[in-house]
Each structure stands twice: as structure tokens, then as C-alpha cells.
Design a protein around this nucleic acid. Structure first.
Lengths: 325, 325
DNA sequence: TTGAAAGCGGTACCAA
DNA sequence: TTGGTACCGCTTTCAA
């Protein structure tokens, strides 16, 4: 028996109607017990699997979930993807990953491809910047925004990190330890998350009774390179004795600038990272960081996958915590 | 206009045959210029995308590639997945990720799901252990094995790391620095890669004129936990002054055992990791490691994706290098 | 309990 | 240059 195994090929093989085979393999009641057993046995022998394309064509939906991340090397995104993959597998969902590199064009391309696949849902970290308003809408894919919120995006739900207190506490902690020049490197205000984090930093300064010095604040489209460059500038300017980061890639970039100059974070220079890869504990005396609730985020996202697009737009957020080292 | 946009709905909308629409949107020559322009314009307005399921049903193949990895948190796998995702996107291939957790059952499940999707190819790191021989074969998906080779697997190709020299050199380097109790933690012999790495370690000992002490060698199914436990045993036994690792997860596990005991790798204890996450450079004085050619592996794998299953089974390997710190 | 027909969205093939 | 038909694999609906 060659070629792909279908219910029809099995039916031909057994000399019966393909409908009987279909019913037997879909656990429909109206099949004689003996017939069903024979069919199930033969199907197993032949290694039959249902053709997902045929199911999709009938309008029964795919079990495909898209995941759009800036990259998957960053510890935070990797861990998120890992949990997502595990939970999706448990529900026999397919996880299709696309990397956006924080680029609107790549993001748009990925969404289009997912629409071709008829993905049932897309989980995405929206890229910074304003997308072309004339783009076709993505219905009927339900879209869940992660970590960042894009205004007027038509997303069904948003799952955010509430990092306000953790970032404010980071500033307060550095101030408590005598730092007066506390720099901030974060995302620009394209997305609300960027603005919120900057506000948390400012509130920290205010509560510590420190003035805000614009020279100590760097904001732009977040990336590893941006974090590194900003940290280099802050170090060169010499006004800062500590840095608080507001972005996972920024954090690694800024850290690399410090390490490159031979500065030991926590000893030569105060540093609070954003996102807490396990190895932060092992660098120098351990690197302080804002820890993100990855597991909570992922589980909430998967829980939302089942929801119908008809539901009201929902926003959930989970608290980040400051890890002091 | 509601519902999903199809060539038929567009045809109805324009009062023409769906065949003309199909031709216009597939760049067939036999369409009048004016007609084509009108169709293309309308399709763009409506946000038409081709239905991938319909294409698949016709037997034209999907553009889906499966990727099976033990996990995606480990730096090596994450970087591999990242490069794969980038290259796949450039060729408008869909990358479907499944995590196996090095478990044969999960691996088998993932393969079955991918067969339902009619994935054109699967790239997989085979799990340790012997799979049930009675399992249905996976044709017509072409399978590419990564990093590990499973004997008699029916894979179309295998892309390996040639780490022999790097591991041997690691042992020689430690011996040069006066170490006589050099432990090894690696995978057991289920897969050839495990055996090869152990052999490289042995050859290093031989060339260094050191005897092999079975108490210094730990091999088992590779995992973070196995690496950590093995390292703890080696440390407790007190015969080893250095450890060489033969596996990416083992390496992180063993390292965590050292750090947990407050030992500084490279100062209190010699340590050679396997796989070289960028932060290895930042821990203690920097951690020595066998660096894997991630980029080469990924590009080779993607190059092989295009090959027809008819091709002879091909094996390519890329050299790892020892990074001394 | 079983079977036959129709349709999902495309394209190859033929007819006009 | 256009249009009609049939088919891919599966299930819903109706008929036997």
C-alpha cells in the first residue's frame, strides 16, 4: 500500500465505504463494534493520521497558534516560548514561531503568513512604532498582545507586566545606598509600557528626593545595541554611579557595556537589570534585577487562547519583583 | 463583505469566474491586463490571502518545517532555533516548534502532529534511548537529524558537531596545567555522539599520559539534573580537580553545582563547559568551553531542507572549538 | 448500521 | 482570453 493513507484508501483496502471508516475513527456511535475494531486496527497498522488540511478546509479550524517574538535568544522570550510550547503541546496545539526582530515589516509579514495558515490565534509582542493604519485587519484570528500594548490594535486581550513598583523600588534601593546619579535606559514612548517604566523611574527619584537629570535618561527603540550604547554614554559622561534598565534586551546590552569596560556590577557600579536570567546570580557578586513573572504570563496567555473573539477586550497584568543581590 | 475572502468570493464580487481570479493572482499569463489589475486591486483592498489548507489539499505541499528540540531555554538550542527561524522566514517557510524534553514519547507525539500538518520536513535532535521499532514510518516527511545520530532512523540527513579535537584538547589543556584528576560528565552510549565524546576524553587522557579512573567518569541520559548530580558526586568524592562536560544541558547543570558550593570555576576548580553561552565569559574569570558552530549547523540544515528525500543519506559535521579563558 | 452526495478553496484540464 | 468541471480529504446531511 503506497501513497498517503486516507480514510478512502483504508475504505478501499477493507472494501467498505469511507464514511464508515470516518465514523469509526471519529468515535461516532453508529458503527458496528466488530467493524470499528477492524477499522481501528487497520488504521493503526498503516499509521493513519488525519489530514489537518482537510479539517481546516471544512472550516473546523486549525489547531495552530502563532507566536511572534522579537527574538528567542533572550532569556525572557526563550523561557516564555518554552512554557508556551509545553502548554500548547499538552492541548495538542501547534506553535508556529516567527521572529520580528522588533521590526514592523517582519511583524506584518508574519501575521500574513499566519493568516494563510488560518491560525486560530496569535500571541505577539507588538513591535515599537506605529503600524500602517491601512493594513487589512486580521480577523478572524484572535490576537493576544504580550508585554507591550499597542493602542487601537484590535487585539482581543493584552497580558502585561506590572513592573511599576519593582522599578520604583530599584531606584529607591540605589538611593538608599547613597547613589545620587541614577541613570535610566528604557524604551521610548511609542508603547505604553515604555512610558510606564519611565514614570516608575521618575517616581522613584521623587520619593528619594532626587532631582531628575535629563542627561541621565536614555530612551529609544529598545534593543541590545541601544542598551549598550546608552550605557557607554552614561559611563563616559561620568555623572551616573548606577543604572536602572527598563527592557530585557536593553538590560543585556547595558550589562555588556559594563563588562566590556571591566566594571564589576554591584561593586564598581550599581546596576539593576530587567528580566532575570538565572546566570545574573553568577556574574560578579550577583546582578540585581527586575524579575518578570514568565510562568504566570504564559499560563494566562494560553488560558486566553480558548476565549472567543466576541469577548470584551481584556487586560491582565502580573507583578514583577525586584531581586536584590 | 463578510466571511473569509476567497477567490470565489472575489469572483462573485466582480461578477467574473473564479478561475480568472485565480489566474490573475497566480501571475498566469492568460489574463487581460485591465482585468488583472482590477482583480489585484480588489484582492488587496479586501486583504485576500491564499488559503494554505486548500493548497495543501491539492497535494502541492505545505511550507511547514517542524523543529524538535529538547527545550528552547538552553542557549545552544535557542540560538539554533533563532537562526532557523530567521532563515525560514526568509524563504517563507513556517517553523513549527515542538519540545521533546528528551523524551521519546513526546518526540513521537510531535512527529505525529507534524505528519497531520503534512510538514515538508522535520529537523530534530533525536532523544536518547531506542524508539519503539514498530512505530509507523514518517514518510513522506524528510527528516534531518541534528547534533545526535540515531542508528537506523531512516533520516534523510544528519548534521553533527565534530567535537573530538576540542574535547581532547580540553583534557590536554587541564593536564598541562597540572590537573591529574580530570572528571568527565557526558551522555551515555545510546547515541553515537555520546560514545564519541567519551572517546575524545579518553584520548585526551591517553595523550596526557594519565590513567583512566572509572570513578571520574559519569555517563547517563543527559540533562541539567544529571549534570548537577554528577558534578556534586565528583566534588564530594574529592578525587577530581577539574571537570570536562560533554553536553549542553549537562554543562549548565554541572556549573550550577559548582556555583552552589561557592566554587569559582577556573580558580578553585577547573571547568570546561560544553556550548558557549555569551555569559560564560562573565562568570568568575571566564569559563572555558567547547564552542559549537551554531550558525554553520543551522545554515547547513536549511540548505538540506530543499533536498528531495530521494537523495542518498548525507552526513555533514562542523568542528567545535575550545575556548580557553 | 451503512452509504451516497455535497462542499470547504484552490488549480489543472478542457471547452468555448 | 475566459469559464466550467473535477478533484484533493474529511464530515454533515440525507437516504437506504
Amino acid at each position: 500500500m503506497s501513497g498517503r493513507i486516507t480514510i478512502k484508501s483504508i475504505a478501499r483496502d477493507l472494501g467498505i465505504s469511507h464514511m464508515t471508516v470516518s465514523r469509526a475513527l471519529s468515535n461516532h456511535p453508529n458503527v458496528q463494534k466488530s467493524t470499528r475494531e477492524m477499522i481501528v486496527k487497520r488504521a493503526r497498522e498503516l499509521g493513519y493520521v488525519k489530514n489537518a488540511a482537510a479539517t481546516a478546509m471544512r472550516g473546523d479550524g486549525t489547531r495552530i497558534v502563532g507566536l511572534l517574538l522579537p527574538n528567542i535568544v533572550n532569556d525572557f522570550y526563550a523561557r516564555f516560548a518554552n512554557v508556551m510550547a509545553e502548554v500548547c503541546a499538552a492541548q495538542s496545539l501547534h506553535l508556529v514561531i516567527h521572529l520580528t526582530n522588533d521590526d514592523l515589516g517582519l511583524e506584518q509579514q508574519a501575521l500574513e503568513r499566519l493568516r494563510e495558515l488560518q491560525a486560530m490565534a496569535v500571541v505577539m509582542v507588538p513591535s515599537p512604532g506605529a503600524p500602517d493604519a491601512s493594513l487589512p485587519d486580521m480577523t478572524p484570528m484572535s490576537i493576544i498582545e504580550l508585554v507591550r500594548r499597542r493602542e487601537g490594535s484590535g487585539a482581543q486581550a493584552t497580558v502585561l507586566v506590572d513592573d511599576h513598583d519593582a522599578l520604583r523600588d530599584a531606584v529607591l534601593h540605589l538611593a538608599d545606598h547613597g547613589h545620587r546619579g541614577i541613570g535610566y535606559i528604557g524604551a521610548s514612548g511609542d508603547l505604553s509600557s515604555g512610558r510606564n517604566r519611565l514614570n516608575a523611574y521618575r517616581e522613584g527619584l521623587r520619593q528619594a528626593g532626587l532631582p531628575e537629570d535629563p542627561a541621565l535618561v536614555h530612551t529609544d527603540a529598545p534593543s541590545f545595541g541601544m542598551g549598550r550604547k546608552s550605557a557607554e554614554h552614561l559611563l563616559a559622561a561620568g555623572k551616573a554611579t548606577g543604572i536602572v534598565c527598563g527592557g530585557v534586551e536593553i538590560s543585556n546590552g547595558a550589562l555588556s557595556a559594563l563588562m566590556h569596560q571591566g566594571l564589576k556590577p554591584g561593586r564598581d557600579f550599581a546596576f539593576v537589570g530587567y528580566g532575570d536570567p538565572h546566570w545574573y546570580a553568577w556574574v560578579a557578586q550577583g546582578i540585581m534585577a527586575v524579575r518578570l513573572p514568565v510562568e504566570d504570563l504564559a499560563r494566562e496567555v494560553v488560558a486566553l487562547l480558548g476565549n472567543e473573539p466576541a469577548q470584551a477586550k481584556e487586560t491582565r497584568s502580573f507583578k514583577a519583583t525586584l531581586v536584590i543581590r
